[in-house]
């Protein structure tokens, strides 16, 4: 494993009884960057995150975060010292006030930055004397962010950070994530909100049924992923389009649609050589790629 990877997993697996929650998951994330971790409900996102943070133990495989092994309790402490985590539930101690929770959390981090804490308190307008249980979900997310960011973590892991937030809060959160990534923090977040991921992420990982089905940078995706739609005088032979870079071919009447991760020019060439009457090449949205990647009617190996 290389030391400049912020997160690195090799054949990481987690099994609950007969269920493979995560299966042979291998990926690397270099920092500082923003990585969107996508997948349907139950795809294995939360299990992966919890393995990275040492909350659950891998059944097989290995993983490193910030150069420390995730399955070693002592090294896991070192990981957590430099990693901030905001879970989907934004579960904070309901019985504490905002002020008490800030004091409590800051006591665990010698490198806590009171200047950042004060700046975020002002920015988020968090009521210091109010108990956490009396805060709205948006306010709780802001408090969780304050607790995470006031110690300038090397890695920020968020599980569904925008879940339950109003559009204004979502916008503020996305701007904040972009800002801290620019300051050197690596952001790794799971989400179902593809438009948000597409807006701020540098790269994406898509996981389906515990298996990694796509690991790509968004720049690569924007530059190379194309949808080629070709019309023919008669029903075209689908097999002719099984070319390198073709992810999916769908025929409908006399029209054929090809989703390509590269090699779009060759596909266009092939369509023209088969006497296509029309050929259109369009960029592909992350949403389309995601839906294609998590299609249940195709085995992972065939994608």
């Amino acid at each position: 494993m290389t030391s400049d990877n912020v997160i690195e997993t090799h054949a990481l697996a987690k099994r609950y009884g007969d269920v493979d929650a995560v299966h042979a998951l291998s990926f690397q994330i270099r920092g500082p960057s923003i990585t969107g971790f996508l997948g349907r409900n139950g795809a294995g996102k939360s299990s992966t995150i919890r393995m990275l943070l040492g909350m659950i133990k891998p059944t097989a495989g290995s993983g490193m975060v910030l150069g420390h092994r995730i399955d070693d309790p002592k090294q896991s402490l070192l990981i957590r010292r430099r990693t901030a985590y905001i879970g989907e539930e934004k579960g904070l101690y309901a019985y504490m006030t905002v002020e008490q929770l800030v004091r409590f959390t800051s006591s665990f981090y010698p490198d806590w930055r009171p200047d950042i804490e004060q700046r975020l308190l002002r920015m988020y307008q968090l009521p210091l004397r109010r108990k956490v249980k009396a805060l709205s979900k948006g306010m709780r997310t802001k408090l969780a962010l304050l607790l995470a960011l006031s110690r300038r973590p090397a890695l920020l892991i968020l599980d569904e950070p925008t879940e339950g937030l109003d559009p204004v809060s979502i916008e503020e959160l996305l701007q904040m994530l972009t800002g801290i990534a620019a300051e050197g923090t690596t952001v790794f977040f799971s989400s179902h909100q593809l438009a948000e991921v597409e807006r701020i992420a540098d790269s994406i990982l898509i996981i389906e049924r515990g298996r990694l089905v796509l690991d790509v940078s968004l720049d690569h995706l924007r530059e190379n992923y194309r949808r080629v739609t070709a019309g023919f005088p008669a029903r075209p032979p689908e097999a002719e389009f099984r070319l390198p870079g073709v992810e999916r071919v769908r025929a409908s009447g006399r029209q054929i649609t090809v989703l390509a991760s590269r090699n779009a020019d060759a596909i266009v060439e092939r369509a023209r050589s088969l006497s296509a009457v029309s050929v259109e090449v369009e960029p592909v949205s992350l949403r389309e790629i995601f839906l294609d990647a998590v299609r249940t009617d195709a085995p992972a190996e065939a994608r």
Binding site: R50, L53, M55, L77, R80, R81, G91
Partner: peptide, 15 residues
């Protein structure tokens, strides 16, 4: 059950 285990376990404190 209270949803705070993630926060507690993410603190740099051993179990």
């Amino acid at each position: 059950a209270h949803g705070t285990a993630g926060f507690t376990l993410s603190l740099p404190v051993s179990r």
